[in-house]
């Protein structure tokens, strides 16, 4: 067993885990943060995307022991409790989801994208989300949702 200290959504957790514990299982089963989903479990679909030290990664392909000392943000920590992040609002307003399974990963990947590029073209949004698969909506409304959030975060006028 290994002892790790990880700051998740601003709160430090010290936990004892088996070294083989995947980060996604650590978040879901040890910390009960079930917003991060497991889709493919093979690094393809992006349902498990979270941020480690500000960068998006696939939590099904990282060990919990590898983030010892790091800071992790999950979908639960993106906005203060009771508020929606502009991306969450955008997905709502633009109908960027149907079943919602892919949505936490989509939003975390999009949040990383908007950090790097606050004013992306539609093509750049699609390219930036190439690690995320959605089996329901098609990607059109997801792109609109990200553009809605981008505009809002830049302080531009927003339209759903």
């Amino acid at each position: 067993m290994s002892t790790i200290t990880v700051t998740v959504n601003g709160k430090a957790h010290t936990s004892t885990v088996e070294p083989r514990t995947l980060l996604v299982h650590y978040l879901r089963e040890h910390l009960n943060l079930t917003g991060t989903h497991i889709g493919c479990d093979t690094s393809q679909c992006g349902a498990c995307v979270v941020h480690v030290d500000g960068k998006s990664i696939k939590a099904c392909t990282v060990l919990a022991v590898q983030v010892d000392g790091a800071s992790v943000t999950t979908i639960e920590g993106l906005a203060p409790a009771g508020e929606l992040h502009p991306l969450q609002e955008g997905f709502w307003e633009c109908h960027g989801l149907q079943c919602g399974y892919c949505t936490p990963g989509m939003i975390m990947a999009a949040a990383d994208l908007l950090q790097q590029n606050p004013n992306p073209s539609d093509d750049e949004v699609r390219h930036g989300l190439e690690g995320n698969l959605c089996r329901c909506t098609g990607y059109h409304n997801i792109v609109r949702a990200v553009q809605y959030a981008a505009a809002k975060m830049r302080g531009d006028e927003v339209t759903a």
């Binding site: 960068k55 990664i57 696939k58 392909t61 990947a109 990383d112 994208l113 930036g128 190439e130 690690g131």
Partner: peptide, 9 residues
């Protein structure tokens, strides 16, 4: 290579 999450690791 891969996608941005792959490139971050």
């Amino acid at each position: 290579i891969g996608d941005i999450q792959v490139r971050n690791r």
